[in-house]
Each structure stands twice: as C-alpha cells, then as structure tokens.
C-alpha cells in the first residue's frame, strides 16, 4: 500500500481550478519531487494535503488513514510533516522552536529539550540553540524549519522550497541534509524551483501545470518529456 494516496483532488478559487483532478501515490521510502511553473498549484497541493485548504473533491489518504476530515494539527499527529515556503520561525530561541512540536506530543519539558537538542545536532544547528532565529541567515532559518518539521517524526515530510533563495554555497550545505533526513527513513515530497538540486535528490518527479498533473517519472524521463518542455518554455497552442 502506498504511504500517500491522492485521488482526484480538486480545489477551486472562484472560477480558477488551482488543483484540477490530481491523482498520484507516494511509496514509503521515496523522495518525490514536484515541479512546475509559477502558479501551477504546487503549494496549493501542499496546503490541501496538510489541511490548510479544503478540497472541493477528492481524497487524501496517509498510511491507510483518510485525512480529509482531520484538522491540520491532527494530520501532523497522523504523521504528516511540512515546511513553509516563506519561513517565519516562532519568536523564541532556535531550541524552543524545535521544542514546540515535541511538546505537542509529550508535555515533558526536559524530554522535549533533549530531543530538540538531538534534532539540532542532526541539522548542524546545535551551536545556535540559544540564538533568536531573526538573527540568522536564511539558510539557517530554513534548516530550523526542517528541524521543526522533522521533530514531529513524520512518516511523510513535505518540503516547500527549502533551497530557494539560497546561494550556491548554502545550497551545497543544505542539500545533503535532505538526503540525510531521507536516510533516517523519512519519505520526502519536495517542491523546488531549482531544477538541478531537485533532479539531484529526487528518485521520481511529478510535474504540474495550471493545476493539473502533466507528467511523472524519473528525472531523466521528465526532462525529456515534450509536455514538460512546453510547459516551461511555452507554446502558443499547447497540445498537452
């Protein structure tokens, strides 16, 4: 059974179908990339899966459990983790930021502090434990975002542009972290604008355009797919 099943998901904003009849599966242990031009509906899809938005139609099933009726915090407890494209850490220390999800599961302060410290070590942030996030670089704040999401011990981790806006050095620092998280046994679903980076980590790539899923396959298959090339380069009368 797939870890995540998305069936015929549709979300309308007024007359616009932001997500149009999208279906796909993600198997446990995969790293799946999601690409598409601006406005293709990638973040909307993430918001539907994490429960911030409600679909008009379709089903979302995580590890056999239907998510449609669950609130965002319940989905998190069910094993769904996510980061946000615009990182806004909580106004508290880095360590406390990571303690928040832990305390939502077990209110013991000391235990949460220890586990949070471990999580920071994993993401090479332990020396910043007592720093205020607003004093850190974007790359570091994105790592806090990942640390926080990872502290929920998700079955599926959805990463929304954790590399966008970083310089090449920072990307080369943050990219291995995604692999490292994956090696911990976490299945990853990742949106990324930076094609090179995405292709480097993903085993499989889904492509969206105008709310619809237009292609799916290995990075090589997808980049040579005509529809995908058209979606990115544009064509006057799309045939896909």
């Amino acid at each position: 059974m797939p870890l995540l099943q998305v069936k015929n998901l549709t979300k309308r904003f007024g007359g616009l179908k932001a997500v149009n009849n999208v279906s796909f599966d993600i198997q446990a242990g995969e790293i799946v990339g999601l690409i598409g031009p601006n406005g293709a509906g990638k973040t909307t899809l993430f918001n539907l899966i994490s429960g911030i938005l409600h679909p008009e139609e379709g089903h979302i099933i995580l590890d056999g459990q239907p998510l449609n009726q669950l609130s965002p915090p319940r989905r998190s407890l069910a094993g769904l983790g996510r980061t946000f494209q615009v990182v806004r850490p909580f106004a508290m220390t880095v360590l406390e930021n990571v303690m928040v999800p832990l305390l939502a599961r077990d209110p013991h302060m000391d235990k949460a502090r220890d586990s949070a410290m471990q999580m920071l070590a994993l993401l090479r942030l332990e020396h910043l434990a007592d720093a205020q996030p607003d004093s850190l670089t974007l790359a570091q704040r994105k790592r806090i975002e990942v640390a926080r999401a990872l502290a929920t011990r998700p079955k599926l981790l959805m990463l929304d542009e954790v590399l966008a806006g970083l310089n090449p050095t920072e990307i080369s620092e943050n990219l291995p972290i995604i692999r490292q998280v994956h090696e911990q046994g976490v299945t990853i679903f990742i949106i990324e604008h930076l094609m090179d980076a995405l292709m480097a980590v993903s085993q499989r790539v889904l492509v969206m355009e105008l709310g619809a899923l237009i292609a799916s396959g290995t990075p090589q298959e997808v980049t040579s797919n005509e529809c995908v090339i058209k979606a990115y380069l544009g064509e006057e009368t799309p045939t896909c």
Binding site: S71, F90, P101, R148, A149
Partner: peptide, 26 residues
C-alpha cells in the same frame, strides 16, 4: 508560560499556521 501550553501559545502568536502544521492544537 513555561509549560507546554505556554510554548503552544507563543508559537500560535508568532505563526499560527506553522504551529498547527507541527501538531499544535492552537
């Protein structure tokens, strides 16, 4: 303020959506 509840409240005050996505019933 220094309990789990305090953390959840402070998290919700600075970014409610993120707090919920982390499993906090804000």
């Amino acid at each position: 303020r220094h309990s789990a509840l305090g953390f959840h409240l402070r998290a919700s005050a600075s970014n409610d959506e993120a707090a919920q996505a982390l499993g906090v019933d804000t």
